[in-house]
Design a protein around this nucleic acid. Structure first.
Length: 606
DNA sequence: AGAGGTGGTG
DNA sequence: CATGCACCACCTCT
């Protein structure tokens, strides 16, 4: 395509004085679309320094020296970034948003993010987010040099010409990429979903800036008590297996040394298969649970504690930010192929539920003077399935009853009553397994294994289920068929997911087709849940601003949103939070009620 | 460095 | 022949 700049020699101007900055900002104010990028010494906005801010037109990049010029002093700079009449194009806007907000006091409004655009255009086809180098290559055929990027890391010197050329090119490529992506978004009818993602990215940026408070002392106490228990089980296990290993050696400190490394899969397999003569295919918990042997029992106990300590111990505390004293996880808003978030460093979405021994979530508390307002959607995925399939019985079940009890009553020929859960807990559990399993495209044999019945009985349950909910079967099969035929599926809100459909000659053709079928059955359900939660995040952020509430969205876990709000405003806000969550749900769900009960308190639980 | 196993969440 | 979706962290082994 025709470029308005020379990739080898991009036009740029280095702005180092206030007077020139003022002039350039006036020039930029005549533009409708501005490309934005920053260069920093660190990825962390709390510890890094802002070196350069690039604002560009399609022809020229203006590179502001952020160490020389205090951009906070220029009302026009703030105007350009905050006025929605200027469209701002960025690659991974979340990053730039955070530095610009914290270092120059402006919030970017009206964003087009090339990384997110690519994400919605290629959902399911790529493992990770697209880098700018990749976008420039695929859309423009331009090979970008990225080696200069790392020269900014920890940089304290004078900005070099190489660095300026690099910074300049970084935003000039954004315009033609934006134009090409816009065409594709329109062709794929993905404009609305892209707009949703662009609106969400501001919320995510703010969420990460705020972070979550964690009670470090309480966390340490939990870990210490878990370590005690783990070590006790480890010792017992080593003693129990010592007879099988001619091991009476002592280590340097006179302690009897261990027979095996309990964490080693290889050594455990040897222990079970060769020493204990218990043949096991693997050492997973499902297998261990079936083995009636003290070593298996000790290992299961050990594993329970070891897991919690290794995954949620000191490594998590090491991620507490030195400046804020809070955790600032990375939220990737297109982390999953279905449109869901993923989260890392640390992954707040996998903190264990509170339990007697390990009440981890109780350590997540509000800052002094604040409350946590927690809302999650009630049985969201079942409601989505009922609404989208239009199945009358399922709609009735999610609307008027406890859906798992209702389906259990139907399938096992019992009378439904509000106390069904108490009367027939096992039947309800079986129905719940079916309800969840079918949302993942589960087959009869897996179902049978899970609820501990023969494959024949599993098939009977499955048949009976779909006899009761005929539209559900039609709906799910329809998605599977469509995905295989066209190579993609879409949620009602318009979010697409693509599939690598194998060639008929592929030796694994059937297996891969089955896989696509299962993924496609799950996509409208999980994807719609994600769509709804993302609308809710945007609505909540807007309301917090509009109402002038002293509060912030701090995190989200798929169908749950947590806000931290000044204590005296928390109860009123909880009503608004509930209202906006339901409003977001009702944008998509038209046939079933959306439910979301708020919880106001001092710990993260509900 | 990457793969595989295991296990935490929705 | 196998057949439940979506993730991330930690461990060991190669």
């Amino acid at each position: 395509m025709e470029l308005k700049f020379d990739p080898q020699n991009p036009k740029y101007e280095f702005i180092t004085t206030g007077s020139r900055a003022e002039e350039v900002l006036k020039i930029l104010a005549n533009e409708k679309i501005i490309a934005v990028d920053v260069e920093t010494t660190d990825l962390n906005p709390y510890t890094g320094t802002l070196l350069l801010v690039q604002l560009g037109t399609p022809e020229i990049s203006y590179v502001f020296d952020a160490r020389e010029i205090n951009l906070c002093d220029f009302p026009l700079y703030k105007e350009l970034l905050e006025n929605p009449k200027y469209l701002k194009i960025l690659q991974n806007a979340k990053f730039d948003y955070q530095f610009i907000k914290l270092k120059t006091g402006s919030q970017i409004i009206n964003i087009f993010d090339t990384m997110l655009a690519e994400g919605v255009l290629t959902a399911g086809l790529r493992g990770r987010n697209a880098g700018l180098k990749e976008l420039a290559s695929t859309y423009l055929g331009v090979d970008m040099e990225k080696a200069t990027r790392k020269t900014f890391y920890g940089y304290t010197g004078k900005i070099t010409e190489d660095q300026l050329i690099y910074s300049g090119l970084d935003i000039l490529v954004l315009f033609p990429i934006f134009e090409e992506q816009m065409k594709r978004l329109q062709a794929e009818k993905l404009v609305n979903i892209a707009k949703l993602e662009f609106a969400v990215t501001r919320v995510v940026a703010e969420m990460e800036i705020r972070g979550v408070y964690i009670n470090v002392d309480k966390w340490k106490e939990i870990i210490a008590s878990l370590q005690k228990k783990r070590d006790s089980y480890a010792r017992q296990l080593q003693e129990a297996i010592r007879p099988y290993y001619n091991n009476t050696q002592s280590d340097l400190f006179g302690n009897v040394s261990d027979c095996i490394n309990i964490n080693s899969q290889t050594q455990l397999m040897d222990l079970f298969n060769n020493k204990l003569n218990i043949s096991v295919p693997s050492t997973g918990d499902a297998i261990l649970a079936t083995i009636d042997h003290p070593v298996a029992k000790l290992l299961r106990d050990y594993r329970g504690y070891e897991k919690l300590i290794s995954a949620f111990g000191d490594t998590l505390l090491a991620k507490v930010n030195k400046v804020t004293g809070r955790l600032h996880p990375d939220f990737m808003q297109l982390g999953a192929a279905t449109g869901r978030f993923s989260c890392s460093n640390p992954n707040l979405q996998q903190i264990p539920r509170n339990s007697e021994e390990a009440p981890f979530r109780q350590c997540f508390t509000p800052a002094p003077g604040y409350k946590l307002v927690v809302t999650d959607y009630s049985s969201m995925e079942m409601r989505v399935l009922a609404d989208l399939s239009g199945d009358e019985r399922l709609i009735q079940a999610v609307s008027d009853a406890d859906v798992h009890s209702f389906t259990a009553a139907l399938m096992f020929g019992k009378e439904y009553s509000p106390d069904f859960k108490k009367k027939y807990p096992d039947l309800r559990q079986a129905a719940k397994a079916i309800n969840f399993g079918l949302m993942y495209g589960m087959g009869a044999s897996s179902l049978a294994r899970q609820i501990n019945v023969t494959p024949e009985v599993g098939q009977e349950y499955m048949d009976k289920y779909f006899a009761n909910f005929p539209s559900v079967r039609k709906f799910l099969e329809g998605y599977a068929t469509h995905a295989v035929k066209f190579g993609w599926s879409a949620t009602p809100a318009g979010r697409k997911r693509w599939y690598h459909v194998p060639d008929k000659t592929d030796p694994d053709y059937k297996k891969k087709i089955a896989q696509i079928g299962r993924e496609a059955k799950n996509h409208p359900i999980q994807g719609t849940n994600a769509d709804v939660t993302k609308y809710a995040l945007v609505f909540l952020h807007e309301r917090l601003k509009k109402e002038g509430v002293d509060g912030f969205v701090t995190h989200t876990v798929h169908d749950e949103v947590v806000c931290e709000v000044r204590a005296d405003q928390a109860e009123d806000w909880a009503q608004i939070q509930q209202y906006e969550m339901v409003r977001a749900g009702e944008l998509i769900l038209k046939k079933v009620p959306v439910k979301s009960d708020p919880f106001v308190g001092d710990v993260w639980e509900h």
